[in-house]
Every structure is written in structure tokens, then in C-alpha cells.
Design a protein around this nucleic acid. Structure first.
Lengths: 330, 330
DNA sequence: CTGTTAGCGCTTTCAT
DNA sequence: ATGAAAGCGCTAACAG
């Protein structure tokens, strides 16, 4: 029965025939072409794979990740694509999960340098873009220049400070929370963490602070509650008068901890965030503004259009508010 | 070449043969079985479809929807399933999008009674669960008894009040924001909205407030900013001394608006939320506690196990905090 | 405008 | 432990 046309190319079939096909289908309980068979034959699945880090659950808790997914979703919706979320757990099955995914391409949410998933994707020869790194031969890369942005926001955070500190994303997949000084930026396995540490180091040096004395407080997850705890620990061992955080979430947690300790922002301690999420406006946070939503859309577009090279760097800017000291010279 | 075993059932192949297969594959650039072909042959896709409302983008902005997705994702991850997000836009193509989705079952995020997507799913004869309604013949249903819970939280909200009001989710897909009294609960096309309105009406009647006098302020989306605006409008026309909101997000927006108007919570106006999200603790909000994450997991489990009937009602409880008057008789 | 043909790549009997 | 054969359901190319 070559009534397949009635579904795939209705225009190529007379109205009468279409009618008869529809009636026969209803009678037989036929619901339309089988998606797998169609994919096999057509050679495409009309679904975009999105690979999220090992704590998939957290991806939905993280407002930045959610905004990013929203951007991807928007593009998928417009183009009639579905969006296949690929849960990776950090175990050995991850590469297999990637391999068996019926998708036409991948968007990878920022991960560590040696994530085996990256290699698995490369082997599939499907278009793929990594958000924020790591850079992988053959895959696209979308993200801002984190080092440069960190240098810029760091300058605002550290101005007029005597004892600056950094509140950091996790260094690697172990996601250990830890407070210690002079941590080597290059030890970080997440490119985002590494680049921002490098930028903060640049900023610190320019304001006369040797990196060896800089306390780096590391959070295991981009979560406010954890940032609050870690900051409390930081305050117990150190007395920072400026904290540059890698996200608004972390900064929000820091502010809660500072207030609990009876410290004022920015008088006793300046704080900067990153992302310009809604919470940044609420808290008057000086921050790096960037649109994760736009970046998600950019990633999806790049993959679906197979334009993986020379992707433009997304825009970012400094948003100066009341959580930092104004114009005081270093 | 029947070396297919090397991939699908490695145990049934000698180590030597496996080795040879691997080498040949590497040489030919063969990356492993094609997922579509495998799905076609096996008759299953190893992906679970998740249908989100028309504003897919908002799903990721809504903390409750995100938590729900996190729960679904968790179960999918455990079972080696991918999760296919199906963007529906409210247009005529939605049913087609559902139909061509290569998935083994569906989880549907709460929608309106007459959503054509529900019928499309039913026709596919795949296991499906709807979260929070509407109830559909043949599909599973997971969700709390919203009317009962609304009656309970409404009692706390309205106690000691002279002029109560309700801050509501949208009534239908038009998502019109609006402030008006005595709105008929049964006019709401979203079962969640309808049931909660019914429960609030029950609570109002019990505390001696005729529903016809009750102002219902409707928000188009579950967003704090919109709730703030709508509440401001409510305050301009009315002087409520109690507001029962359908979510913590809406309640948070209401509190912002109340404070901006110089009103104290709960002295000038009591406020209740719904969900017990983190923001509820921050604001000391009296609320209905339920775990959207657990409910997401329950939906996914039910679909993957094909256990669609007699699903247990998820637990919920009242969490009384400082945003309501204490024990004052009505 | 409609019908026929071939084959997408795999897995699963069944037979060796 | 391995090989052969059949067919999952569809669509694109071609012929009528």
C-alpha cells in the first residue's frame, strides 16, 4: 500500500485518495508512519541531542543551565525538532548512552577537558557544539572569553581591597568544596573554572595582590546554599574584604553568609557575581551580564545549520551596581 | 556480516572474534549500530517523551517545572533512557510533533482539558501519564488533590480576614492577566487552576466569605514579576487583607508589591504560597509542601513500568510559617 | 496523479 | 560459537 504519500507529501495525492487513506487508517487503527522506520529511511531523526553534566538533576536546578536549555528549546521548537536530553552519570556507560541516542547532532553543556563523552561524540561524525569548552577538534565552540571577562569583573571586585578572595565553581568532577590559598588555576579541569581563575589572577596582580596569598573558596555545585556554607568557612579562616564569585548564585549565597556574620556589603566586603540573573538585580550585584538563553539558541542553530566554525563570540558586558566600591583606586 | 553480536550481546561472541570486529570497525570508521535501525528492529526507542506546555521556554524558567523535569531525568538516567522534550507551541502542528516523536511513552506536564495533544497521544497507544490533569481515559494521572489542599491552605490564608483575595494561575491558554471578583471556578480550562479555585471557594465559604465578593487576580504565567504587577493592580482596586496564591512564585511577587505599597505581612495582609520552594523558606511563607521532583520521578516510573492505573496520590502537607495570622478565629 | 521496487541497518530466529 | 535468512515499516526514485 503506497499510501505513504498521504502522510509524507499530502500535496502529491488527490483529495479523494487522501480521504480514502484517512478512512482506511481510522478503520485499521493505524496512527501514522512509525517514527523509527521513518528515521531509518530518511537518514535523520529530527531530534537534537543535549548532553548535560553528570548531575543531570542539578542542571534543572541551575538557573543558568535552565536558561540555556530554554534557548535550545526555542530553536528546536521553531524548526520542528525535538530535543533529546542525554543524562550522563559520570560512569562508564555514558559513551554508550551517547552512541545509541537517535539524534542528528549534539549540544554539549560545558564539561571537563577529558570527558570521554566528547570523544564518543567525535567518533559519531555528527555536528556538535560544546558550550563554554573544552575546545575539541572537529566540534564547534560557543562561549565568551571567560578569562577576559574575569579580568574585567575582577578589577571591579578588587578595587580598593586589601584582602580579596575568589568564590569558585568546582575544579573537577569530584566537586569537592574546599577553602585554600593560591590555588593553581591550571589545576582546574573545567575550562570555565580555569579561565575565570586565570582572569581573576590577572586582575589580582594588576591591583597588587600576589596570587599566592589569594584565598580560593571552591563550591562543589553552583548552588546558593552551598556557597553560603563555604563562605562561612571562608570567613572563619580569613577576613576577605572583597569576594569575586563565579556566578550570581554563588554571590547570593556569599551575601547571605556575610550578612549573617554582621558584615555590610560593600563597605566591609565587596561582592561580584556573574551572569546578571534576576537575583543580581534584586541584590544590587555588580556582575558580568551575558544571555545564556541566546547562547543556547546559538548552539542549537549552529548544530542544525552545521555551521561549526568561526562562531561569533557571544556578547557580554559589565553591570556595575551597589555591591562593589565605587572608583576607589587600588 | 553477522558481527552484530559483538555489540548487542558481547557475551555470545568469542574474545577473538570480538577483537577482530573491533579492529575492522576502527578501520572502516564504523561507530556502532545505527540507533534508528536498532529502534526499528527492536520495537522500542529507549527514550521517554516529555510534553511541555506551549511556552516551552517558560518551562525552564518555572522552578516547579524544572524540579519536575529533574525527577523525570533522574529515573531516565537510572534506566538508561533518554528524555525527549517535545516542544508544543499551541499551533496545529503540535499533534504532528507528538506523532513523529520516536519515544516509548509520554509524560505530559499539566495542561488544559481540551488540549488536542492529549488525543494525539491516546491514538498512539503508548503508555502515558498526565501530571496534575486533565484526567484522560486510558492515560495515567499523577497529582495531589488540589481542591482538598486548596481548602486547607485557604483556611490558613483566610483566617481572621475580612477581605480575602486569590492570586491565580492562568485560566486557559490565552493566559490573560485580569483582576475581577467572583470568577467562576469552573470556567478555568486548566484543571489545576480550577481545582484550586474550587478549594479556595470552599475555604472562603467556611470562613463566611461569599465567593461572589472574592477578588480573583489572574496571572498569565507563573512568574514573580507578573505577580507583582497584578498584585499592584489588585491593591489599586481593592484592599485585600489576605491573599491565597497558587504558587510560591506568585506569592513572592505579591509580597514585593505589598511591601512596595507600605503594607506589612501578615499584619496588613496575610499571604500564602504553594509548593514550598526554597523561596518560601526565605520569605517565611505559609505554603503547601509537595515535591515536584518526586512527582516527576513517579510519572516517569509509571510510564516506563506501564503501570498507569491506581497510581498513589503524592504526599502533601501544610507548612505554616510567619506570613499568615496565627490561630485567629474567622 | 498513482503504483511498483528496492533497500535504509539492524536483530532475531533457526540451522549449522 | 558462528552463519544465513527474513523482515521491522517506511520512503525515494522511477515507471506508468
Amino acid at each position: 500500500m503506497t499510501a505513504s504519500y498521504a502522510y509524507s507529501q499530502p500535496s502529491r495525492v488527490s483529495a479523494g485518495a487522501r480521504e480514502r487513506v484517512a478512512r482506511a487508517a481510522a478503520e485499521l487503527g493505524y496512527a501514522g508512519p512509525d517514527p523509527s522506520a521513518r528515521s531509518l529511511r530518511r537518514g535523520r531523526t529530527s531530534s537534537l541531542g543535549v548532553v548535560l553534566g553528570e548531575h543531570l538533576a542539578y542542571a534543572f536546578d541551575d538557573p543558568q543551565a535552565s536558561a540555556f536549555l530554554g534557548g535550545v528549546a526555542e530553536v528546536c521548537g521553531e524548526r520542528g525538532y525535538a530535543m533529546t536530553i542525554l543524562p550522563t552519570t559520570g560512569d562508564a556507560h555514558d559513551t554508550e548512552r551517547i552512541r545509541i541516542a537517535a539524534v542528528d547532532g549534539f549540544v554539549v553543556w560545558t564539561t571537563v577537558d577529558d570527558d570521554p563523552v566528547l570523544d564518543a561524540i567525535r567518533r559519531l561524525h555528527l555536528p556538535a557544539v560544546v558550550h563554554s569548552g573544552p575546545a575539541v577538534e572537529g566540534l564547534g565552540l560557543v562561549g565568551i572569553n571567560n578569562r577576559k571577562a574575569a579580568r574585567a569583573i575582577g578589577a571591579l571586585a578588587f578595587q580598593g581591597s586589601r584582602r580579596p578572595a575568589v568564590l569558585s565553581f568546582p575544579l573537577d568532577r569530584a566537586r569537592v568544596a574546599d577553602v585554600s590559598p593560591g590555588r593553581k588555576p591550571t589545576a582546574a579541569a573545567f575550562p570555565v573554572t580555569r579561565d575565570r581563575l586565570l582572569g581573576f589572577r590577572d586582575a589580582a596582580r594588576r591591583t597588587g595582590h600576589p596570587w599566592s596569598a589569594m584565598t580560593v573558596a571552591v563550591c562543589g555545585h553552583n548552588q546558593r546554599a552551598e556557597a553560603e556554607q563555604v563562605t562561612s568557612r571562608l570567613l572563619a579562616t580569613d577576613r576577605p574584604d572583597a569576594i569575586a564569585a563565579m556566578s550570581d548564585e554563588l554571590a547570593a549565597g556569599a551575601i547571605t553568609a556575610l550578612r549573617a556574620a554582621g558584615l555590610r556589603v560593600p563597605d566591609d566586603c565587596a561582592v561580584t557575581g556573574w551572569d546578571d540573573a534576576p537575583v543580581a538585580a534584586d541584590l544590587g550585584l555588580t556582575t558580568v551580564a551575558q544571555s545564556m538563553r541566546d547562547q543556547g539558541a546559538q548552539c542549537a542553530t549552529a548544530v542544525l545549520d552545521r555551521k561549526l566554525t568561526s562562531l561569533p563570540e557571544p556578547p557580554w558586558s559589565l553591570r556595575e551596581r551597589s555591591s562593589t566600591r565605587r572608583g576607589a583606586p587600588a
